[in-house]
Design a protein around this nucleic acid. Structure first.
Ligand SMILES: [Mn+2]
Ligand SMILES: [Mn+2]
Ligand SMILES: [Zn+2]
Ligand SMILES: [Zn+2]
Lengths: 144, 144
DNA sequence: TTAAAATTGATAAATATTATCTATTTATTG
DNA sequence: CAATAAATAGATAATATTTATCAATTTTAA
């Protein structure tokens, strides 16, 4: 999602988030990224245009965005958290060869699962969110 | 799962794993644990009976068990990997209040999802494993 | 413009995990 | 059972990621 600086400032204001250059730039970079970047990767991505922004600020801003529900954490087998600005429920495909994460939307499956738990809930547990993660291998088309 | 030392030794032999006291004890502790322990927790749990075993050995052994498919990693929002010796596919319930992980078996749901992807596969992706994680709150019965 | 409050960046500290390396242990052979 | 080669363990250093600290700067509102 390519968001303009003014779009982001407006969004921040609505949520009571104080607008600062680091915050806006970090959120813009995350929103544009399609690859579920880590804090380090976001820090690198803004280095050229905004060399002053520190890694600590990137971490603090990402935490804040998660708190405000503008982003979510994506954990993987690597010892490193990645972030996602796509907040609509969706499935993650983890490629075990490349470690890449792809988004996958499947409304039909979402409804299938939701329906299942509507009928047959879980005893003594209040469901807030159901995440489906699929591990496997992405087939690159251009081979052979 | 409560496994005896001889049971474990036999299992190791079958898989070509060299039997050592640390390895057997670490695997036994993991297999007995119901709470998806971290390396640190496993290290603590064996301290009394086997004070010599180092944390490095716990990490190395857990990696080996994952490699040999006797255990799997469980990642969470905490910056710490947890381990699971239950290798049959199952669902994890994450309590957002207590950070506890519970196992939940739902054969019906597993078949529902499997059936869905049999009919309607994912383009350019080979599915190896489907994990369903449910986040929410465990309702303790004894309140009120 | 001023001032209070929040945020930043520099840096130190904390955590979790991995690497290194020698001593010990294991499994195998005679 | 003793000897041996190979693998593993434990001690500890190093690495990687994330969090905490705190003075200086910036933001927002008055
Ligand atoms: Mn996900
Ligand atoms: Mn870490
Ligand atoms: Zn995503
Ligand atoms: Zn489990």
């Amino acid at each position: 999602m390519n968001l303009s600086l003014t779009q982001i400032k407006t969004q921040f204001q609505e949520l009571g988030i104080k607008s600062t250059i680091p915050r806006v730039v970090i959120y813009q970079s995350l929103a544009k990224a399609m690859h579920h970047p880590s804090a380090e990767e976001i820090h690198l991505s803004i280095q050229k245009k905004y060399p002053g922004v520190s890694l600590a600020t990137v971490y603090k801003t990402l935490d804040m965005l998660v708190q405000k529900s503008l982003a979510s954490k994506v954990v993987t087998d690597e010892d490193k958290v990645r972030y996602d600005s796509k907040m609509e429920p969706h499935i993650h495909l983890y490629c075990e060869k490349t470690q890449k994460i792809m988004d996958y939307d499947d409304q039909e499956l979402a409804e299938l699962i939701a329906g299942h738990f509507t009928k047959k809930g879980i005893t003594n547990f209040k469901i807030n969110r159901i995440q489906v993660n699929i591990k496997g291998e992405s087939k690159t088309i251009k081979n052979k």
